[in-house]
Design a protein around this nucleic acid. Structure first.
Lengths: 195, 195
DNA sequence: TAATATTTTACGAAAAAAGTAAAATAAAAC
DNA sequence: GTTTTATTTTACTTTTTTCGTAAAATATTA
């Protein structure tokens, strides 16, 4: 990041959004905390959502970078999955529940659209990874790649399902469960057909 | 608490205030979360501050009850102090930092006044305890009771001092330090003149 | 059924936040 | 040291949110 003022805004924004969710945080509050004037804020971001997006984007970029480095490493597929479950879900992708609440439950239409774009983008990359994995015989050959995409899309819907969310202590736990299910099905993991 | 609706409001209010501080929480939000209509809210509390006060009062009552039960127990004075340091400061008196921030830094004049009233009330009780303790020889005889009050009042001011606050990880830690200092001075605790 | 409590709807008033323009300062580049 | 560029300050208008209330509808209890 070249600009120090912009960087300050991104960092302060993130820390405040993480604590309170972005609905409760005002632009002026961010500016005050970041020691940046409101005018300068509007120079870089035309409104609050743009800052949210920028923060998301940055986070996603970091996240994807780590994801790729795992996927490109030379270890068995299952091991890659393990690493991702541990790292990506709870580590790098550490979205606070306050943030998720604002994002999902209080779903601003503009934000939802942006989220979908992002998701599609990410899915595209993940999709290719799974196609490759399939070619190398790392996952079952009799699974249609289309089904993978379909299911991943539904995973996204499930995350928004409050009834499902209730079953877990926090969104993270739910995400872990869904991902585990996605890769291993309900079969005993030790006897998984993947290997 | 007789009324279930009122109770709901107090509980939901507390949990939301504790998380976000009362500035960020709206009355309608509390109502929605508590499954109480806005009209019913205004039946019991004429505005947001009244709810805050009620919550504070309840908390303070519980707190004072425990305080008294310790002070009336038949153990050495130092032991009482120890118990209070442990329990009252971090346990029962568990005011969240978000709440304190709203209370102190963004000091609403109305709220400050209320806090002062409360403090005076509490100080009165504590003062008597110290007078009694002094009579029984549990604390130094050459300390003026007036000084105790004076210092306790200043303790309150110190808590508001941002520069002092910065020195500690959280307000609780600072409060502990101040209280310890108040009772033991800077002398080595094992060789304390109190006993 | 009558009396009471609670919610819904709908609204106007007040307060807070968003967003903008122009002048004043500060920082950097020349 | 002057000019350019970036940032802040001030002071405002507009928009949005929140507050608080009234009256009618619904639910609860006696």
């Amino acid at each position: 990041m070249s600009n120090p003022k912009k960087k300050q805004l991104l960092e302060t924004g993130k820390s405040l959004f993480w604590k309170y969710g972005f609905k409760r945080v005002t632009i002026e509050e961010i500016c005050a905390e970041a020691n940046v004037s409101k005018m300068t804020y509007y120079k870089y971001f035309s409104n609050k959502m743009e800052l949210v997006k920028a923060i998301m984007e940055k986070m996603l970029t970091n996240s994807m970078e780590k994801y790729k480095s795992i996927m490109n490493s030379d270890v068995p597929f299952t091991e890659k999955i393990e690493k991702q479950l541990q790292m990506k879900m709870e580590g790098t992708m550490d979205i606070s529940s306050e943030f998720i609440d604002d994002l999902m439950i209080h779903g601003e239409p503009e934000m939802m659209e942006y989220m979908n774009e992002m998701t599609q983008k990410v899915l595209g990359i993940i999709y290719q990874d799974y196609v490759n994995a399939q070619r190398r015989g790392e996952i079952r050959k009799d699974v249609k790649p289309e089904f993978i995409i379909y299911f991943l899309n539904h995973l996204y819907d499930m995350i928004k399902d409050e009834n499902l969310l209730k079953m877990y202590e926090n969104p993270n736990e739910m995400a872990m469960e869904l991902t585990r299910f996605f890769f291993y099905g309900i079969a005993n993991r030790d006897k998984s057909p993947i290997g």
